[in-house]
């Protein structure tokens, strides 16, 4: 039977209910996706000693213009004497070195050198002076590492810059603490021991090797944690939550008011 129409309101079918159905469907799909979405597995190993000579050749070709012929440093770049193989391995495997241009910010990129050349370069830098070696993590050690202890150490030492879920954060004057989502356990250990860029150095007396492995294990966990409550919203806390409540929550219910409050469908 008729929609009794008002003299002044034109009877017009609004597509809103259909839109809402679609939205609802999207919510359902999002929910299902959350349940079946694949989770990447962490993995990481690697240490070796390669020929120092091969490394020296590579070094002289690719690094010496900034770091000096024997890694003694220039006014453009710091000395590499004593930084250890761990530092070189970290910088090269994370693609931070070589820099695309002098003075650029060292950001994570795809590595320039293939793995065997990185091995050689690291061995060469490690041979310059005693320094932290490339760490290795035994399977036993990894399995024994206590996630809870790693978490406590991470919150006490790392979260202030890298954020509780390893999402990174801002530092002063345009510098940034990187997100840890791509860091392998070995890279995490190397960073702890060598303090790349502005990161402080943590010695084995402060954080012993088992503890460092526990931290690395926690980093692997927390950067890709299970989200029992639905979409993780980037694990960045109240800011994405505020965006969601305004852009989805408030906008959604206001749109519903527009639909409900309109005269006749």
């Amino acid at each position: 039977m008729s929609h009794v129409t008002n003299a002044r309101s034109a009877p017009r079918r609004r597509p809103l209910p259909a839109t809402l159905v679609v939205l609802l469907g999207l919510f359902v799909i999002a929910g299902v996706w959350l349940l079946v979405a694949p989770r990447s597995k962490a993995q990481g190993t690697g240490d070796n000693a390669a020929t120092v000579t091969k490394g020296r050749v590579l070094f002289e070709r690719g690094c010496s213009s900034c770091h000096g012929l024997h890694g003694e440093g220039t006014n453009q770049a710091p000395t590499l004497i004593g930084v250890g193989a761990a530092a070189a391995d970290f910088q090269l495997t994370t693609g931070r070195m070589p820099l695309p241009a002098p003075g650029a910010e060292a950001e994570r990129r795809d590595p320039i050198y293939p793995p065997e050349q990185i091995e050689a370069l690291s061995a060469y830098v490690g041979s310059l002076a005693p320094g932290p070696p490339i760490p290795s993590i035994g399977d036993q050690q990894w399995n024994d590492a206590d996630l809870a202890e790693g978490g406590e150490l991470f919150r006490a030492n790392c979260a202030s810059c890298h954020q509780a879920a390893g999402k990174g954060g801002a530092l002063t004057y345009g510098k940034h603490a990187p997100a840890l989502s791509e860091a392998t356990p070995v890279e995490a250990l190397e960073a702890i021991r060598t303090g790349p860029e502005n990161m402080p150095v943590f010695s084995p007396t402060q954080i012993n090797d088992d503890q460092a492995v526990a931290i690395a294990k926690y980093v692997q966990f927390v950067t890709n944690p299970p989200d029992p409550g639905g979409a993780g919203l980037g694990h960045l806390g109240p800011i994405p939550e505020g965006l969601v409540i305004w852009l989805i929550g408030m906008t959604g219910v206001a749109a519903a008011a527009l639909w409900i409050g309109s005269r006749q469908a």
């Binding site: 919510f27 979260a159 603490a177 409550g229 800011i239």
Partner: peptide, 22 residues
């Protein structure tokens, strides 16, 4: 159900000496 809010398990227990970026 679908958007996780305030995942306190990621933030950890309060400790006056600790703080998270952001």
């Amino acid at each position: 159900g679908l958007a996780q809010i305030n995942p306190i398990w990621l933030y950890g227990p309060y400790d006056p000496a600790n703080v998270s970026a952001a």
